[in-house]
Amino acid sequence: MTIAVIVGMNSEAALLPPGIPVGAAGGVTRRVTELAERLLAEGAEGLLSFGIAGGLDPALTSGNLVVGLSVQWEGETFAADAAWASRLLTAIPGARQGTIAAVSRIAATPEAKQALYQGGAAVVDMESGAMAKVCAAAGKPFAVLRAVADPAARGLPRSVFVGLAPDGSARPWAVMGALLRRPWELPGLIRVGLDSQAALAALRDAVKVVGPTLGM
């Protein structure tokens, strides 16, 4: 079965086995929808949302892996493919299961994360919701594999917001410009970088375990 992958960043796409169709949406909801529809139209029989996420459950730390059983998006809940999720959970040591909260704007504060956690979600990302909705409309299965970057109690500096282009590429010069305006954010930005590296390392290890089928 042919599957394709939706990510937010090119650095996440680089972790995937060669030859897997992938679309990087840059955290832009409209692009997620367009990419998901295109990948299905090109023959993908299922989609995987893959990448880093914000932690909502206080028990989760940077680098923890979460397999989504469902996705909350715009007042709806979309169920992930149960068999696919089960295979991912069985294959990946230490992976946890949970609900994914999808948002169109970064959940940047502990308070925003707490509100999503109270809604029953374990982690939050910006791609799973629109992707899940496209799959539901097309009658296609989907799965979610996410690694926690910033834990629930950690906020994100504003400089992070400009660091990603719509095509999923990094914008280091934009971040540098933001830091020049808000230099006090440097320690927080370094922390974000360390959290993200822990999450990407966990995803890299997970891909090695599940192989080119990505659990499908």
Rank of each mutant, 00 (worst) to 15 (best):
L214Y: 01
A59E: 08
D150I: 01
P166Y: 13
I190K: 12
D150P: 06
T77E: 13
V124A: 02
L35R: 03
V124H: 02
P212A: 15
T61S: 13
G120A: 14
P151E: 03
A132T: 11
E111C: 04
A165F: 00
A91V: 11
R154G: 07
V103D: 14
G129W: 02
L39E: 05
V210L: 12
L180S: 12
V134L: 14
I52G: 11
E127D: 13
P17H: 00
I92N: 09
T77Q: 11
R96K: 13
L180P: 03
L60M: 09
A85Q: 01
L89D: 01
V192D: 06
L116M: 12
A202I: 15
V162K: 02
V103G: 07
A199C: 13
K133T: 14
V162M: 02
A102K: 06
G19Y: 06
E34V: 15
A122F: 08
A138W: 01
A83P: 15
P110T: 01
I100K: 04
P183Q: 11
M216D: 07
L39Y: 00
A170Y: 03
L16D: 01
A206V: 15
G19V: 07
S159N: 04
F142D: 06
A149F: 00
V207A: 13
W73Q: 11
V162F: 01
L156F: 03
E37I: 09
I190T: 12
F50L: 11
I6R: 03
M216V: 13
A122W: 02
R181W: 08
T61D: 13
A83Q: 12
E127W: 06
R30M: 04
A82S: 14
R181P: 05
A115I: 06
R30N: 07
A137M: 04
V209M: 05
P141R: 00
T99L: 11
A153Q: 14
P183S: 09
S62G: 01
A112V: 01
L145Y: 00
V5Y: 06
G8H: 10
L116Q: 08
V148E: 01
V32Y: 00
V209S: 13
V66C: 04
A83I: 10
A79P: 08
E185W: 09
G98H: 00
V67C: 08
K113C: 02
D150V: 00
Y117T: 09
G211R: 02
P183R: 08
A130T: 08
S169D: 11
S70V: 05
A147G: 00
L15N: 02
Q114C: 13
G75A: 09
E34Q: 12
L200E: 07
P110Y: 03
L89N: 06
A174P: 09
R171L: 07
G177Q: 03
R30F: 02
G193R: 08
T29F: 06
R158K: 12
L48G: 08
A36S: 15
P93L: 03
L203H: 07
R87D: 09
A91Y: 04
L89A: 09
D57S: 01
T99S: 06
A174T: 14
L65I: 13
G26S: 07
G27Q: 02
V160W: 09
F142P: 05
S11H: 14
L156C: 13
E37M: 07
M1S: 13
S196L: 10
L214T: 05
I52H: 07
I3H: 04
Q72R: 14
A136R: 04
P151S: 08
L116D: 05
R182H: 14
G51P: 10
E74V: 09
L180G: 12
